[in-house]
Design a protein around this nucleic acid. Structure first.
Lengths: 193, 193
DNA sequence: CACCTAATTAGATATTTATCTAATTTCGGT
DNA sequence: ACCGAAATTAGATAAATATCTAATTAGGTG
């Protein structure tokens, strides 16, 4: 459920230590020991908090040797913030959709073959999102997908399923938990400006 | 401290019952009994959550007879959300300030007499904020003000101290706790577009 | 292989807090 | 001045969780 995701995210954020970590990471990646040192806490404690932050995709990590660098995941955080802003705005804004739709259609025609395969992943962010959303249309809301199942689905469009699957997560279209994937509610998707 | 405010706000938001209340209030004001009914919880429990939400100014209330209607305080919520977005954006954007300053100066000259009194409170939001910020300059960061003390300060500018004091809170320039007022860090202020 | 450092896991403790029931307060109407 | 409805307060209980120490796992390097 959508509300539930927000709850978990904000509960995670609403902790002094975790917010301090996020603040530190906003100035650049750090590894666990460094964080522990700066905060005067035990590595075990940092592991605990990073686990929490990872669970909501507020951070991601990159391994270098046996030290792991943690990065702030700005886009996910921004999306949660935006869904808070939506909540705070009681008025419903309806925009004119016709032009937007025409533009989307053109992008889809350019990037997909007539038999529905993706020619290549657009480099331009805006077009990439349109393409991703097009592929997402075949997935069911609320359904839980095994990673393998999702890979198979994506392969119908393009061989590089790993990249595309990652894009689904990065742009907040999907949510991963214990290797199980699920569509996010649309309010949480990365929006095209 | 700034981080601390954020922590308290997000901890408050990060609770299923409170987020559900906020969601309900986003569709219009409600009184306590109504909220309790819809959520299947005790009035005492609702009081508890509303107290929390009030502490961070996420809601405000209006009394009608002896029933109290609660409203969502959209602007405060949006400001916290924006400060999250700031955190998520690692790049620092510097803008050209010279034009902006000239405009502010003009507004201040128009709305204040030569001996520094406020002629009247601007109706236009943008100008109002400039005027409010001008008055705020005489307050000290980190200092805690009694309500009476703050009233006296505002009276130096204008007799209607109650309205102005309220504007300080609504626009997130100041923070109130147990009748004590304090300046918010500037990152949290209402920003002029 | 032996060793070192980083990270994680497991288990224990102490603090926080959401919720309830019961008592109390607040306000308007009769 | 009294009564009823709405809200708050007080106190109790149960659940969640931040942190620590100690043990374990992972990855590299001499």
């Amino acid at each position: 459920m959508q509300l539930n995701r927000l709850v978990i995210f904000y509960k995670t954020i609403g902790d002094p230590t975790r917010l301090r970590i996020m603040k530190m990471l906003s100035e650049g990646p750090l590894h666990g020991q460094a964080i522990a040192g700066k905060l005067g806490l035990t590595p075990a404690t940092i592991t605990h908090h990073l686990k929490r932050l990872r669970e909501v995709n507020a951070v991601y990590e990159r391994r270098d040797g046996n030290t792991i660098y943690f990065y702030l995941n700005g886009s996910v955080i921004k999306h949660y913030a935006k869904s808070l802003i939506n909540l705070a705005e009681q008025d419903e804004v309806k925009k004119d959709m016709t032009d937007v739709m025409a533009e989307r259609q053109k992008v889809i025609e350019n990037f997909f073959t007539t038999d529905g395969r993706l020619k290549n992943i657009p480099a331009q962010r805006k077009k990439k999102l349109i393409v991703l959303e097009h592929m997402l249309k075949g997935l069911q809301k609320g359904k839980k997908y095994e990673e393998k199942e999702l890979n198979e689905y994506i392969k119908k469009f393009h061989d590089d399923y790993a990249t595309i699957r990652r894009e689904f997560i990065i742009n907040n279209y999907m949510y991963r938990e214990n290797g199980i994937y699920e569509l996010n509610p649309e309010e949480m998707w990365t929006k095209i400006e």
